[in-house]
Amino acid sequence: MERLVHRLTTLRTRLESGMDRREFLRTVATSGYAVGVAHLLGVEDFLGVDDGEVPIVTALVRDDPDDPSSLRERTRSVSAEWYAAVEKAFELNELLARVGFTGYLGSAVVPGNYDSATASVSIGVSSEGQSIPEMIEEFADGVSIDTEGIIRLERMEDGPDFTEPRLMERLPDGDVPSGFACETPSSVATLAPALYHPNANGPLFATAEHAFKSMSTLDGETLGLPIGSGETLELGTVVQSHPIEDVAVVEPNGGVLPSSRIVAPSVARVRGQYTKYGLADLIARDEELEKVGALTGHTTGQIQGIDAVTCFTDDFCRRGQIRWGGEMDLTDGDSGSVSYHPDPEGEDGDVLIAGFNNARTWWPGQSYVWGVSAYRLTEQHGYHF
């Protein structure tokens, strides 16, 4: 079995590096592979695109904008050389997270553009100047490694000047859109767009788990929607909390339901979410992400890293993170907002979710917002937008 896995891996590597159809078929025939092994390699898709390209799944998108169960995979063809470089970077990043050498504080994959067909891994190490283990550098196999020393700070530095949170002006007539302030028993956060789960009866509210920071347990805690008139509408109670992903899921109490709309400068409609390779594709094409927070409002920024591991703040590491924008794009009260990007194949105003916004850097030398990717929340817990 191990020999078969090794042979499959070797063949896949050759496929990803640009093996053409004729060479692939000849290799399969002369290597004794059964015809059925093709599905393990995704070869049917490979044979359906131009030489030197491979298909990737970039997003999960609703066929029917109003039916969250109509999700389908969207694919596009990309350079096999670029794909191989990014895949190696993902593997190296996973190895770093597993090894967790002394001084390791986190890392992220940074795909290059399609012309360069490269990818790098940015590694954060403690300021004591720990070196990268030799076995990591050997495994890199051509993937560029950028190492940055980080000073651990106990206290968050001052963020943007405090402003009044963005409140709904009146009681909602129907579903509640995201981008407005929501209220926990201990703080204010930003309401996310509707989340869905196969086992749920309908849409779910969501916001940042750490907004309930003074609670010993979140189950049964309420989430409210403050209204500009001074009222607070109870949205529902927490039914699931995920501290590592920093997401609290709230079941509606029957009064109002969450919406898949984001009230930005113009109203955006959530049509689905990006995959890991969809985010890599955005970086390769130099695309930006957007967000609407209850305090800082609408901002945009470049994606700085994906599939990131973050070990700066707790006694555990968070995986599947996105780094984007700058530290001024988020402040207290913006947590729970989502990062998103226009759907390139959707109608005007359609967007795809990249992930949640949970925190920002507060140490010298780095500046970005981080949060869990939508694909990670789907993989780990089954939720989707």
Rank of each mutant, 00 (worst) to 15 (best):
G293C: 04
D219I: 15
A108N: 03
A359D: 10
I227G: 07
S70A: 13
G255V: 13
H197T: 07
P198R: 15
P172N: 06
S107D: 06
F316M: 00
D334F: 09
S373Q: 11
L167C: 01
A117K: 06
L167A: 02
T184N: 06
L330D: 00
R62V: 09
P265I: 13
S122C: 11
L235M: 06
D141I: 05
P177R: 03
V267H: 02
L279C: 11
T222P: 09
R3P: 03
T147F: 07
A374W: 05
A284C: 04
R21L: 07
G326F: 09
R98N: 11
L235R: 02
V270G: 02
P111R: 04
E164C: 04
P243K: 03
A374Q: 15
T361W: 04
A206Y: 09
T378A: 14
N93K: 03
A194V: 06
V309F: 02
L8N: 07
E73K: 08
A117E: 05
M135L: 15
L60K: 12
S367R: 06
S126A: 14
I150W: 11
E251W: 11
L15C: 12
S131Y: 11
E154L: 15
L92W: 03
E234H: 05
Y375W: 14
V369M: 02
G129V: 06
D343A: 11
H6L: 14
P65E: 11
H210K: 10
G333F: 00
P165Q: 05
H6E: 15
E94C: 12
A108I: 01
S373H: 07
R22M: 10
Y114S: 03
A85P: 05
N253I: 02
E327F: 03
V109A: 01
D64P: 09
V143D: 02
R74K: 09
L47A: 06
T147K: 09
A97I: 05
D64Q: 15
L295V: 07
V125A: 03
E290M: 10
E81V: 08
E183G: 03
V267S: 10
L167T: 04
T222W: 13
P198G: 12
H381C: 07
F356R: 08
T27N: 11
Y33P: 08
F90C: 11
I151W: 10
E91H: 10
Y277L: 14
Q130Y: 14
D158S: 15
G325D: 04
R74F: 03
F180K: 04
A248P: 04
I151G: 11
G230W: 01
A34E: 15
